[in-house]
Design a protein around this nucleic acid. Structure first.
Lengths: 107, 107
DNA sequence: GCGCTAATTAACGTAAATGTTAATGATTGG
DNA sequence: CCAATCATTAACATTTACGTTAATTAGCGC
């Protein structure tokens, strides 16, 4: 399985997607913090985190008994790489996305 | 399931990914053409195409008994939208990807 | 060292995905 | 209209994914 397919696969699950988004918004968090509000056991979250690690989407840092998680750029860059390489197929319609990236690049 | 998760899910399968890439490279193709070289029955490909359609990644056009497929920008734009919105998390390292998008925008 | 907490891993059950072959639907050519 | 072709859908078997609870591993504080 290629890197980008592994990343797509990891993010094709709602729980894992929400974990990544939470880490992006809130920064480094312990595994335990990621359990709350998801209506799921810690064991389940732990395995989701393993999938995300193996896809290069999150990194784990050990501190005492805690495992602190952050977003890992590797998996995201694989997605960005793929997306940019296919740009011709989504930029055509000149919509708000196209505008968005143009604005960002001008800034 | 959100649009982007549906797109990630559709592209998390090697066969479906290769179908999309083939349509990008070769343009419009009949369902039958997409079976060849994949070592898989037409029925299996047909269902993969259904998944891709439902994810907004390919479009189907009927011509006689043939179903002609092309890439659909909708699913791709959902991915591009997500990717761009998370740009801060993959552009940080200022690597070749960052250079690539900059070059494209200058062009 | 012992107990407590944090987290992961093991064992297991169920649901979803993916392939097969067979059957069905739809269009074309003679 | 009948047969042939293209494609999809149906029915089925098998594998993979995802959740649970229980057991295990690891560090901290007393």
């Amino acid at each position: 399985m290629t890197t980008v397919i592994k990343a797509f696969s990891a993010l094709s699950d709602q729980t894992r997607m929400s974990i990544v988004e939470q880490l992006m918004t809130e920064g480094e968090l312990a595994a335990g913090d990621l359990i709350e509000g998801r209506g799921m056991s810690g064991a389940a979250i732990s395995r989701h985190l393993k999938v995300l690690r193996e896809a290069g989407l999150v990194r784990q840092r050990v501190q005492g008994t805690h495992r602190l998680y952050t977003v890992d750029g590797h998996g995201l860059r694989a997605i960005a790489d793929w997306t940019i390489s296919k740009r011709a197929f989504w930029e055509a319609s000149l919509d708000r996305l196209d505008a968005a990236i143009t604005l960002e690049d001008q800034a």
